[in-house]
Nucleic acid binder design. Structure first.
Lengths: 202, 202
DNA sequence: GGCCGGGCATGACACCTGTCACCGGCAGGT
DNA sequence: ACCTGCCGGTGACAGGTGTCATGCCCGGCC
């Protein structure tokens, strides 16, 4: 009996290449490929996929969110996050959302098929180095307000712009930025935003 | 007769997946895989690769630089840039460096093999949409000083930090930032840096 | 020589940022 | 009712930032 797979990645070339790689295995069968996060659930239902490989950065909906929806709406389908970025916060959030596994794109190609089989069998698959890093890092110390303000600051927005986009007073925005800078141990808003992103706090 | 390929990409999974994809073609053979830019030339010489597929973002040396070295040091070996980022400036610089082709990672998987064959035959392979964008965009209007200052600004550095790292007076740094902001049509240093990066000007 | 033009620097000005002390509301717990 | 914490907001201050006019130096060029 073969395991039915769905691949979700916004880069068609990577999607196709992964399909070729996994199709080499006798017990795996790629039944669907999608390039957007918001198409995954429908296709998974339509094709009866048993394991979905999800990239995190996709248009429509990110892989973590999709993993959550699959866990809720598509019983019998497990998800495996396959991502470029081994940010600790991503791993934590992915597992909380109900993902069955989490591997980064620089794991050896030979291990992917095995990870898929493990996830299909209901086991948790997690990159060990990343897991360790995630545990010592702890969860994000940022409040929701700080997070949303930092997201805007990433692109270099001014306080006025941020305050308009987040519906907070300029003074509050400055306070949030100040406390975020403090919590990240940095000294400018952009450094803070980049540090937070690197740790998966955004 | 088969075409001998070398794959260079820092993500092992992508590398392996591309190898699987290309190995499906009867006339293509993957003879080497490397994860760093600075290993490509030696491996290409050792294995007699005829076409090298190069990612741009790699440790050691970036794909554009590698394409230049291959063109100079490995006669009979052509290069095909395969990258995530379709920045116009990348395309321009890659072609100037002597790359035989340039495709982005969201082209359909089926077209990659054909691109490889074209490059092997000595033809130029270029993403058409990207080529058009590159022509209208023109080359980077930034001076060397502005470029180096902007690179530091990307991470949110202050003027004092930048001036120390670039060996320019603080006043000059501010002038360069100001003119870069003007040239990019933005209003803060970070916006300018991001805009420049998006257009491949850095 | 005289005359650019570009790279680097300075100084002054208005405005923006980061920090801090402080305040009003509004939940949860006692 | 009381206190405590937390979220949102205000105001003031020192220092950083973006802009502009101006100047110097040096290499090219008629």
């Amino acid at each position: 009996m073969t395991i039915r797979l769905l691949l979700a990645d916004d880069q068609a070339l990577v999607r196709g290449a992964l399909a070729a790689l996994l199709s080499l295995e006798d017990d795996l069968e790629v039944v669907a490929e999608v390039g957007r996060g918001d198409e995954v659930v429908a296709r998974a239902l339509a094709t009866g996929a048993e394991v979905c490989l999800l990239d995190i950065e996709m248009p429509g909906a990110d892989g973590i969110e999709v993993a959550g929806r699959l866990a809720r709406e598509v019983p019998g389908c497990r998800s495996l996050i396959v991502t470029t970025f081994g940010r600790p916060g991503y791993l934590r959030r992915a597992l909380e959302a109900g993902a069955g596994g989490f591997v980064v794109k620089d794991t050896p190609a030979g291990e992917l098929a095995e990870a898929v089989r493990r996830v299909h069998a209901g086991l948790r698959v997690v990159d060990p180095a990343l897991a360790a890093e995630s545990l010592v890092g702890g969860p994000s110390p940022l409040t929701d307000g700080e997070r949303s303000v930092l997201r805007e600051a990433l692109e270099g927005a001014t306080v006025a712009t941020i305050s308009a986009r987040v519906h907070l007073s300029p003074g509050t925005v400055r306070n949030y930025l100040s406390s975020a800078i403090h919590k990240t141990g940095t000294s400018t808003r952009v450094e803070a935003a980049r540090a937070a992103q690197r740790r998966g706090w955004l």
